[in-house]
C-alpha cells in the first residue's frame, strides 16, 4: 500500500502545506498537482487524492499542495493570483524531487490550476509534460500570434540562473544541507545543466497581461508534451481545446487531447472521474 506523508515547504517566505503520495517501486517519474482557483489540494470531489493513489500503484509518486493563501497554506486569500500560484510551482517541484527522488516531473492541473501548470511549464528543467484538465484559454489575444524572440528568451534564462543560484547560495539552509549531507548532487547537477528561468516570477512582469505575454513567449521553449482533457459538455471546451491545440502546433509541442463524453467542467461523477484518471495515467505511462 502506498503511503501519504505531510510536507511543508516555503515559497516566497510563506509556508505551503502538501501531501506526498509515495509509490512502492518508484519509476523515476513524479507528478505535482495544481488545484483550481477556489479549491485546495484534494481537487473537486477529491479527484486529486484518488488520482494520486492510482498513480502510486503504478510506481508514480506525487505531491498535492495548497498554493499560498489557499487550503492549509500560509497567506491571505486576496493576496493570491495566477502569478503567485505559478511562482509556487517551482518550489513544489523541488519538494517532490527532494522527497521522492523523481527525475522527471509531470504537472497535472485542473481549471485555473491547469492554467498555472501551463504557465509553470518552463519553470523547472525536470518538467517533462503537462496534463491540463479543463484548462481555460490562457490568453485570447495570443491568437493574433506574437513573434517569439528565442535569442531574447535564452538570454533572459541565463540572467535568471545567475541570480537564482546566487540567491540559493546565500541561504543558511543550503549550507546546513551541504554539511549534513542532505544535498542530492545528482539532482543539483541536472538542474544546473538544464537550468531554469523566470516566467513565473511576479517580479519579472509588471502587469498580469505582461506576465501572460511572458508565459506565452517562454512556452515556446517547452520541451515536454501536453495532454488536454475536457468534458464534452463543458461550454468552454471547444474554444479552449482549439486554443491549446493550435498553440502547441505553432510551437511544435506534441499535444494530444481527450474528451470525456457527457462530462461537465469538474467531472462531477465517479464514471467521469475514473475516465479522466485512466486517460491521464495511460498518457503518463506512454511519455515517462
Amino acid at each position: 500500500m502506498s503511503v501519504q506523508q505531510t510536507v511543508t515547504f516555503k515559497s516566497a517566505g510563506k509556508q505551503l502545506v502538501g501531501v506526498i503520495q509515495r509509490a512502492g517501486a518508484p519509476c523515476g517519474a513524479g507528478v505535482v498537482f495544481a488545484h483550481g482557483w477556489s479549491g485546495y489540494r484534494v481537487g473537486p470531489h477529491g479527484m486529486f487524492v484518488h488520482c494520486a493513489r492510482r498513480l502510486a500503484i503504478e510506481g508514480i509518486p506525487s505531491l498535492r499542495f495548497d498554493f499560498r493563501g489557499r487550503g492549509d497554506s500560509e497567506g491571505e486569500l486576496e493576496d493570491a493570483s495566477l502569478i503567485t500560484m505559478a511562482a509556487d510551482m517551482s518550489p513544489a517541484v523541488d519538494c517532490l524531487i527532494e522527497r521522492t527522488g523523481a527525475n522527471q516531473v509531470f504537472l497535472v492541473g485542473i481549471c485555473s490550476g491547469a492554467e498555472v501548470a501551463f504557465a509553470a511549464a518552463t519553470c523547472h528543467s525536470a518538467i517533462a509534460g503537462l496534463a491540463l484538465w479543463s484548462a481555460p484559454v490562457f490568453w485570447a489575444d495570443a491568437a493574433e500570434g506574437e513573434e517569439i524572440n528565442t535569442a531574447e528568451v535564452a538570454s533572459r534564462k541565463k540572467r535568471y540562473y545567475a541570480a537564482e543560484y546566487l540567491r540559493k547560495l546565500l541561504r543558511p539552509e543550503t549550507w546546513s544541507k551541504l554539511f549534513s549531507g542532505r544535498i542530492q548532487f545528482g539532482i543539483v547537477a541536472r538542474v544546473l545543466l538544464a537550468r531554469r528561468k523566470s516566467t513565473t516570477d511576479i517580479d519579472s512582469a509588471t502587469t498580469p497581461q505582461e506576465w501572460r505575454r511572458n508565459v506565452l513567449r517562454e512556452f515556446a521553449g517547452f520541451g515536454g508534451k501536453v495532454l488536454g482533457v475536457y468534458g464534452a459538455h463543458d461550454p468552454t471546451t471547444g474554444q479552449a481545446l482549439q486554443w491549446y491545440q493550435s498553440l502547441c502546433t505553432d510551437y511544435a509541442i506534441p499535444y494530444s487531447h481527450h474528451l470525456v463524453q457527457g462530462a461537465n467542467h469538474s467531472y462531477y461523477s465517479l464514471v467521469w472521474e475514473r475516465e479522466v484518471m485512466e486517460k491521464t495515467l495511460s498518457w503518463l505511462k506512454e511519455n515517462r
Binding site: P235, G262, A263, N264, Y268, S269, W272, E273
Partner: peptide, 26 residues
C-alpha cells in the same frame, strides 16, 4: 449548456454494494 452530473439514481458497484454516485462521491 454544459450539463450537470448524471442523475443520482441508486446504483450497484462491481463488488455488489448499493449506493448513489452523488457528484463524484459514492
Amino acid at each position: 449548456e454544459g450539463g450537470e452530473s448524471p442523475p443520482a439514481s441508486q446504483a450497484t458497484m462491481t463488488d455488489g454494494r448499493t449506493g448513489i454516485d452523488f457528484e463524484g462521491y459514492w
